[in-house]
Amino acid sequence: MTETADLKELYRRTVLEHSREPHHFGRLDSADHSATGHNPLCGDKCTVYLQLEDDSIANIAFEGAGCAICMASASIMTDTVHGRRIGEAETAATDVLDAFDRDAGIESLHGDMAALGGVRDFPTRIRCATLPWKTLAAALLRSPETVTTETTS
């Protein structure tokens, strides 16, 4: 059945593995940057902690609760930017947010994030995938305000 096939596109093995046992999950006491993202309508919530050293992300962690898509995206996000330079992490966040923002951009997702490409066919779930990345961008800016991806503008 095609419906099941579509769902399997959404919940690919990589996504489920990340969501069940997310990487870098927990609080980072040595963090010097952090920010919180919250989608109050669906309840997804994540806090991203960063410890920056020499212009790089020396340590990263996140904690929160949310759907499989949000948790997987957060886990993949931490893998992607851990050890990267701040500028690279900013670019990665912008690229992911852009990729989901425009239909044609999904193909630009790479690494484990490519496994989240199936979200494209589930418009109401895109905000779940983008929340951790928007929170990362906010953490890099030390944004004191909680960010959300529930309102698109």
Binding site: E3, L7, L10, G43, A65, C67, A68, I69, T124
Partner: peptide, 11 residues
């Protein structure tokens, strides 16, 4: 998560 359930049930 309830949202994942909702999506799978909708399908």
């Amino acid at each position: 998560h309830a949202h994942d359930l909702g999506t799978i049930l909708d399908h």
